[in-house]
Nucleic acid binder design. Structure first.
Lengths: 212, 212
DNA sequence: CAATAAAGTGAACCATGATTCACGACTTTG
DNA sequence: CAAAGTCGTGAATCATGGTTCACTTTATTG
């Protein structure tokens, strides 16, 4: 008698949502949030403008969705460096080594995906997205905070305000790695700057450690 | 036979420019760059919209002018902490003490003028202003870099990449002091958070110093 | 197929805010 | 005062980009 959503249509719906989501992420990864317009997304995804609104409430919902997807992945990668799976090789690293590894991981990902990193961390965005960004930066800080707490317990790190230290590390990483990427035309992605990474690691370790 | 600009008219012109400039700065200091529109400035200054364009090429020129004025003052204040006048009390402080004092100065000004600090350092802005911001942050970093270099020479600080360290300090300060102000409704300005300042100073000093 | 519901469409519309410009007011010089 | 240049005005215009919605197409069921 009437129409009913079925498995097939639901699958298509999900696929369309993913198409739009993926396309939007690609746009942001290449050209930042400023390039993510309803029209450009419709164009890239090969759908009409109105279709976007069948899948996202409005522009803000689209942007925050993309931001969450992208930043969620990034945070997860960094979290794995800080707290490796019990089964992994890195399992037995001490906190100092894991902090180094975590910074290295953040740095490598920031340089390799510098356009996305810039979009997520430093690109001027609307207040809606800025709110998401604070959550995201907090997620990073929480990882560092937890790691620093562990290091204090093991006696590797000095007693300190772990929230401040963790926040400061996030700021130091953002400033040294991401902000300068604001207008780099083409990065020499082939030669990751190990020298730079090393300096940053030394700075941060020195800041939290008992001794050099 | 004809009109010629004279001292009196030039003075008025300069006064009008200053009125607009000051009013614009007040708007930004209270409500950020997002609140600085041509219409709002005209309103506040008590002039017509068209008048703004007699004094500023366009919106971008207005914004960058305001940004330069404001950030120039801030940088100058911080520079004085880092490199006191030879005649001043602080003249004979060592680099460690001056670094502490500089961070303290930055922190106090950021908290006291948190809305302006947020606008200058963290508020989402158009790319034009973002470009100015990079110059401004670099100016801060240059101050810290110079101070760190001095400290290395005096043996107070360890040998290190001074550019990275200086940039990291700027990032750490911005993240710990300014970014959280994003959505603070009303700060308890009366009770500057000496605890927080102390933690930040310890973090930064530890990062650059030879020993704790 | 008929009925129903959801997906897809895109030109029209709307909101925001910068920019223009024709005109009158003001200032200076001879 | 006449001539001429500059200032001040603000409604009209433009630019950008999000949002709507009447309509068409597609899918499902009996």
């Amino acid at each position: 008698m009437a129409y009913r959503p079925t498995e097939k249509t639901e699958a298509r719906k999900k696929a369309q949502h993913k198409l739009l989501s993926d396309t939007a992420l690609a746009i942001v990864s290449n050209d930042g949030f400023k390039a993510l317009t309803i029209a450009s997304l419709a164009q890239e995804a090969g759908v009409a403008i109105g279709t976007i609104y069948k899948y996202f409430e409005d522009k803000a919902a689209l942007c925050t969705h993309v931001f969450k997807i992208a930043s969620g992945k990034e945070v997860e990668m960094v979290r794995r460096s800080a707290f490796p799976e019990p089964s992994s090789d890195s399992e037995k690293l001490n906190c100092t080594e894991r902090l180094e590894q975590t910074i290295q991981s953040f740095a490598e990902r920031a340089i390799a995906g510098h356009k996305l990193a810039y979009a997520l961390i430093a690109e001027p965005v609307s207040p809606d997205i800025e709110a998401e960004r604070l959550i995201y930066r907090k997620a990073y800080a929480d990882i560092f905070e937890h790691l620093i707490e562990q290091g204090i317990d093991t006696g590797e790190f000095r007693r300190q305000d772990t929230k401040v230290a963790a926040t400061a590390i996030v700021g130091a990483l953002a400033e040294t790695l991401v902000s300068p990427l604001a207008h780099i035309v083409e990065q020499n992605i082939n030669a990751p700057d190990e020298e730079l990474f090393s300096s940053i690691k030394k700075f941060c370790l020195n800041a939290v450690c008992k001794t050099d």
